[in-house]
């Protein structure tokens, strides 16, 4: 095992952590503000990937296909989320976790078959844009440009979320709602609008994650099932509703998984679950302070 292999695997893990972060940041915001366990988050991510594929195919996989997809897919998923929130979720805000969970799970089932009807069952693939193809050398390690791109997008999204949550009026209301919802209601703030907006933002992030992962993987049915479990675990071990906790645990998960593939390739699949299990046992309420 030389340093270069280790470094490049670490780098790949880090960029995978960025995808995890983008997806789970949306989930954790929804957790914190709406207090909803959104199983459909993975389905939204899958939808983002499929829409990205369709958009880029529509413009002929050309140089602009990817960038257009990156713009259109998250926004479309955001609109879908808005419909879900206004049409369904707002009726169950006061119910048990189990009921809320199963409502979002019903969306998982419906979305799965709708994707099958709309896009068929065969695997889809999408080109990496020309600018981001190939790889570069860093201290003797060969690193793909696309992963470097993800490493830029991740912090940009994190920065954007930070600016939104701490500098804007709406963001402050979000944080206040996550901390003490009753107080926010008492102050006469229209929390319904906040809920709808946060769910739409979460959907946008899920769609963005899906669009970003699309060029690097085979886009297929069932890509929602594994990501949603990872995202849940990340959100919980980061502290429910805590975006920065989600960032930290995403990186732990991404890097842990990548190093697992390097050192114990046969059983690398169990690494994220072990990490999550151990962290939950050591720190039952998450790494950072939970919003709940």
């Amino acid at each position: 095992m030389d340093f270069a292999t280790l470094a490049s695997q670490f780098f790949i893990g880090l960029s995978r952590g960025m995808i995890f972060f983008i997806v789970s940041a949306g989930l954790t915001l929804i957790f914190g503000v709406l207090r909803i366990t959104n199983f459909a988050h993975g389905a939204l991510y899958m939808l983002g990937a499929f829409i990205a594929y369709s958009v880029s195919t529509l413009v002929g996989q050309g140089p602009y296909g990817f960038w257009l997809a990156l713009l259109v897919a998250p926004v479309t998923v955001m609109l879908v989320s808005l419909v879900i929130e206004r049409g369904l979720l707002r009726f169950i805000y006061n119910r048990d976790h189990l009921i809320q969970m199963l409502l979002t799970y019903s969306l998982v089932l419906i979305a799965g078959d709708l994707v099958k009807i709309l896009w068929g069952t065969e695997f889809k693939s999408m080109d990496i844009p020309a600018v981001l193809r190939g790889s570069f050398n860093l201290w003797g390690a060969s690193l793909p440009w696309y992963n470097a791109f993800l490493l830029i997008v991740g912090p940009v999204v994190a920065l954007g979320l930070w600016l939104f949550l701490s500098k804007t009026h709406l963001g402050k209301i979000c944080r206040a709602t996550a901390t003490d919802r009753e107080m926010v209601d008492v102050l006469g703030i229209n929390s319904t609008r906040v809920f709808a907006m946060v769910f739409a933002l979460g959907g946008w992030l899920a769609g963005l994650g899906g669009a970003l992962i699309a060029p690097t993987t085979s886009i297929s049915m069932g890509m929602d099932a594994s990501i949603v479990i990872y995202a849940f675990l990340i959100v919980v071990i980061g502290g429910l509703g805590n975006v920065w906790g989600a960032l930290i645990s995403s990186i732990i998960m991404g890097v842990g998984e990548a190093l697992g593939i390097l050192f114990i390739p046969g059983i690398a699949i169990i690494i994220p679950y072990i990490i999550a299990g151990v962290l939950l046992i050591v720190r039952p309420t998450g790494l950072l302070k939970s919003a709940w």
Partner: peptide, 28 residues
């Protein structure tokens, strides 16, 4: 034994994590 130390949603998430761990072991 691990899960009963946690409450509510955290309990649920730990059952999910550890259960998926068993799945992954069986799968591999």
């Amino acid at each position: 034994w691990f899960c009963v130390r946690l409450r509510g949603l955290y309990f649920g998430m730990l059952t999910l994590a550890l259960g998926q761990l068993v799945w992954a072991i069986v799968y591999r």
